[in-house]
């Protein structure tokens, strides 16, 4: 089981801020493919990954990052701090 968290419009499109996902996905990209196959709201949220950023265990990562040993994956749009 892995914790998946969503922020900003990704959270709004998926409809929950956090969920536990049972997955055997090897990388972030594989996890996205799994989620997209589940329901339309995921497919919609993940349709353009160039508009998304990902963090693995609270560190920015790329879509090829491995999930082995990871506890928390976060998906969100490009950040707008400051």
């Amino acid at each position: 089981m892995i914790d998946v968290v969503y922020f900003a419009w990704v959270r709004e499109r998926i409809g929950v801020p956090r969920e536990q996902v049972e997955t055997k996905a090897a990388t972030v990209r594989d996890l996205i493919a799994e989620l997209r196959g589940r329901e339309e709201r995921y497919d919609l949220a993940f349709s353009d990954t160039s508009a998304l950023r990902v963090a693995v265990d609270q560190t920015l990562a790329d879509f090829d990052a491995p999930l082995e040993g990871a506890r928390e994956i976060a998906f969100f749009p490009p950040m707008t701090g400051g």
Partner: peptide
Amino acid sequence: MDYLKSRAPFWKKEETGNGADWVAAKDADE
């Protein structure tokens, strides 16, 4: 300032007379 604009996980949503929308990151910030 440059780093916290695009590397610290904050997101801004603006609510105006035309509705509410998330502020898009600018290429210039990256």
